[in-house]
């Protein structure tokens, strides 16, 4: 039988199921033309646009094991980045729009680290001035900082914001890190008593789209 029309092969490959990424990798071994198609940036953009809802490929979790905090990336489908299972020494704080915010609490020292689990790329962020992760009760959120309305389908390499909420020494404050400026904003003191946010480390962050400017 005749091969599928070459011009339309991209349309066929776009309809592969997003929750089974191994299938696309396997068909890219059929011929070089298919490999170039599947691995090209325009294919990835169109694939995300067509399927819209990203598949759940895995989750990061914190496990308390005999008083030691262990972190792990658990794959929920046949997908694994090179050393995704190994995030020892890190604690996931938040995840949104293709980025995972980790706290590194071991060597070479305290830091916030932004992790792209698909490419397994890590980027270390400085801590805000006069902030130590052990001296405060705190939590943080990461979110896309792209201009205008973003579909969040292909923004994981674009600009981002980290929002940090902390309380300690009788004070509570919030500050933001912008990847564009590569610095933290000045802390904004909060009127809430520190008691009111003392449990913030245990609370999952929530993004309220309409409120965010």
């Amino acid at each position: 039988m005749a091969p599928p029309p070459p011009m339309l092969m991209e349309e066929v490959l776009l309809r592969f199921p997003p929750h089974e990424p191994a299938l696309l990798v396997r068909v890219s071994l059929v011929c070089k033309r298919w490999r170039r198609l599947v691995w090209g940036p325009s294919f990835r953009r169109r694939f995300r646009e067509l399927h819209r809802t990203p598949p759940m490929l895995g989750f990061a979790c914190n496990i308390l094991d005999e008083d030691r905090m262990m972190s792990s990336f658990v794959t929920s489908t046949r997908f694994c980045s090179p050393d995704a299972g190994l995030i020892g020494g890190y604690r996931p704080i938040d995840a949104r729009h293709g980025r995972v915010l980790l706290q590194r609490f071991r060597n070479p020292g305290d830091a916030l680290v932004l992790w792209d689990p698909i490419a397994d790329e890590r980027r270390e962020l400085p801590l805000p001035p006069r902030f130590t992760s052990r001296g405060f009760l705190w939590t943080a959120a990461v979110l896309c900082d792209a201009d205008g309305a973003c579909s969040h389908l292909n923004c994981h390499r674009g600009p981002f914001l980290v929002v940090l909420l902390a309380s300690g020494s009788g004070k509570a404050f919030i500050c933001t890190y912008s990847s564009d400026a590569a610095t933290w904003s000045d802390p904004i003191a909060m009127e809430h008593s520190t008691d009111q946010i003392s449990h913030c480390s245990w609370v999952q962050t929530l993004l309220v789209e309409e409120v965010w400017p």
Partner: peptide
């Protein structure tokens, strides 16, 4: 098997 079904030449 895919090459066989769709009559595609292996250029790897």
């Amino acid at each position: 098997q895919i090459r066989e079904v769709f009559n595609i030449k292996n250029d790897y």
